[in-house]
């Protein structure tokens, strides 16, 4: 119950911020359009755009969630919530539900644009993979916000968390052409599996890995929430 009330509260906050809602929905589709015109019919577009369907929701939700959670901390609402009957997981799953839903809308729009406007061959599970990617970004955002005291620090976590995953996911250099140790690093980064799920046939196993990483990040985030502080 409290989880649902928390999710509803977060969605109400979003609703009051129309510009953010607009940006959330439009930006991934607009970036896909940019890629489409950039590649100008070259076959590489299909491969890159497919990967981006997974990367955009991940990055955007990571950013939105880490800022949202940081606001809870700095405004004192987090400390206040932790003095109420709310359980830590109520808060985290509340965020998960609310931003998962926002991510679903975003993914639907992006996949629909890719499919119908830009003629991309989108596998059947694309929307689901994109939503799970959004949830992963959100979960990592919640976790990282625990280590950020200021907005400046929170923003610095974007390159730290996102860039290595993007570089090593196989988009720029195929994974089997990388040095062994880079492959090993790539193997433990969840975004690798998100990209694999979009590109290959083994969707369910890769999707399960991504979802598992998201749940793990949520549990770790719960462990970093302290009711008592110095």
């Amino acid at each position: 119950m409290i989880t649902l009330a928390t999710a509803a509260r977060i969605l109400r906050q979003l609703r009051h911020d129309r510009r953010t809602v607009g940006l959330l929905i439009v930006v991934p589709a607009a970036l896909l359009a940019l890629l489409y015109f950039m590649y100008d019919g070259a076959p590489a577009f299909d491969r890159v755009a497919l990967v981006m369907l997974g990367v955009f929701p991940f990055v955007i939700m990571f950013l939105v969630t880490s800022i949202a959670m940081l606001r809870e901390r700095t405004s004192g609402t987090l400390e206040r919530l932790l003095t109420t009957p709310l359980r830590k997981l109520d808060l985290l799953f509340g965020y998960g539900l609310a931003f998962g839903l926002a991510g679903a809308v975003q993914a639907l729009v992006a996949v629909a644009a890719a499919h119908w406007l830009f003629g991309l061959e989108t596998p059947a599970g694309s929307v689901l993979v994109a939503v799970v990617d959004a949830v992963l970004g959100m979960a990592l955002g919640l976790l990282c916000s625990a280590f950020a005291r200021t907005e400046f620090q929170a923003v610095q976590f974007i390159p730290v968390v996102v860039a290595p995953q993007l570089f090593l996911c196989g988009l720029f250099v195929p994974r089997d052409e990388m040095a062994g140790w880079l492959q090993a690093v790539s193997d433990v980064l969840p975004l690798t599996y998100a990209v694999k799920a979009l590109a290959a046939a083994t969707v369910w196993r890769d999707l399960a890995v991504v979802a598992g990483a998201a749940v793990l990040a949520l549990i770790l985030a719960a462990a970093t929430l302290r009711r008592r502080t110095g």
């Binding site: 509260r9 109400r12 906050q13 400390e79 003095t83």
Partner: peptide, 14 residues
């Protein structure tokens, strides 16, 4: 126990 912090901790966007 009800607690009201010094800085008003309500959601400013609600």
């Amino acid at each position: 126990v009800g607690y009201v912090t010094q800085a008003p901790s309500v959601y400013s966007d609600l």
